[in-house]
Design a protein around this nucleic acid. Structure first.
Lengths: 206, 206
DNA sequence: TCTTGATTTGACCATCTGGTCAAACTCACG
DNA sequence: CGTGAGTTTGACCAGATGGTCAAATCAAGA
């Protein structure tokens, strides 16, 4: 599988199928819990065939993480420094919550990686992620200094947004077990609740 | 290993050592990632010796989860229905955050179990946990109806408390990677931030 | 001290798992 | 159609892993 040449039609198709299958398997069973055979079957390939496209289990996992990291941070990058602060932040929260709803596998994949100590992406966290968060924190601080939102610790604000939104994907079973009686879909109410929380937190003036 | 007779001194000592070692290993590597040998070594026993005390890897894991579940829910049970609502809820939040700080292994163990779909404790979630949450939700609703705290969805309030506090244990590496510059211990600031969030959310009267 | 049940262990096993390899097959293009 | 690169596979391997077992060792009460 020459990596310098342009990928053939079959390469594109199979690589895509492998990553899709790997996302299913890794997010459900974790890195150690997943087996190459499982991924191969899910991708509709034999094990040696899969290893023809990715050298190793590690390589699949690494490719998957890399491809997803950008998508995952896009909502944060989409905050407009020139927009209305409260509107921008509530919009970010809404987008993150929608990502939990629409991409729970991705959320669980990252959660698992971080819980394990981020062995594969620690470098990215303390460089790319850190700078992105530093920038956003500066922006939030600037907004607060101008009196346009309340004074809050910008880093912990960001952590709390990540935590609250991703919780609905990562702890889905627990949430559904507790809410078993009523509405089966927790997301509409979650959206209302988070809006309430952050509106009350961020609205300036006592 | 007679299970009906009273445990001997050696049984007590070794079972405790095994559970302590298993907590380390399972919380760091997950169920599939952990090996019986690893746990045995960490407990200072040979593998067959360990399997003399617990029939299987599954049995160790089950015993560990069972022993921890109660401890984990104690702070919720400690809420006093006759106390001051805001004080009780902020106290619960503080206790949960302290548990994240002092028992991160337990937090990660549960997080891992839930993310995997709670295969071992799903029954407990939809019975014991659910009733405990239902009770607390009723209490919160009652407080809100009496105008003593703001009107909030009590279930999502509880979810948000779990989410925000456990985040500091489960996503520790990420938090420290992002905060790398300043104070190495995020907990004091986290406590202040969470206090601010929930005080603003719950204080009644717009 | 003797005896009996509790404890410990070395050797072993079946299965699973990540990965290899040579050979076979397929596809696109001249 | 012929050909060479790209693709697929059955057979295989070494190491890891959960678990077993008979035999050896130890602890404590009679």
């Amino acid at each position: 599988m020459p990596e310098d040449r342009a990928p053939t039609r079959i390469q594109k198709k199979n690589r895509a199928a492998i990553l899709e299958a790997a996302l299913n398997v890794f997010s459900a069973d974790g890195f150690r819990g997943a087996t190459v055979d499982q991924i191969a079957v899910a991708a509709g390939l034999s094990k040696p065939n899969l290893l023809y496209y990715y050298r190793s289990k590690d390589a699949i996992y690494a490719a998957l993480l890399e491809r997803l990291l950008d998508t995952w941070l896009d909502p944060l990058r989409a905050i407009d420094p020139d927009g209305d602060p409260l509107h921008e932040l509530l919009g970010y929260i809404r987008r993150k919550l929608e990502m939990s709803r629409d991409y729970p596998r991705e959320s669980r994949l990252f959660a698992n990686e971080i819980i394990r100590g981020a062995p594969h992406i620690h470098a990215v966290l303390s460089t790319d992620l850190k700078s992105l968060v530093d920038e956003t924190a500066a922006l939030i601080r600037h907004w607060a200094a101008a009196g346009r939102i309340a004074e809050v610790n910008p880093y912990h604000l960001i952590f709390s947004i990540w935590s609250l939104t991703q919780h609905y994907a990562d702890f889905d079973v627990q949430i559904r077990a507790v809410l078993a009686d009523g509405e089966p879909d927790p997301y509409p109410e979650a959206a209302r609740y988070l809006d309430q929380v952050f509106t009350r937190l961020l609205t300036p003036g006592r």
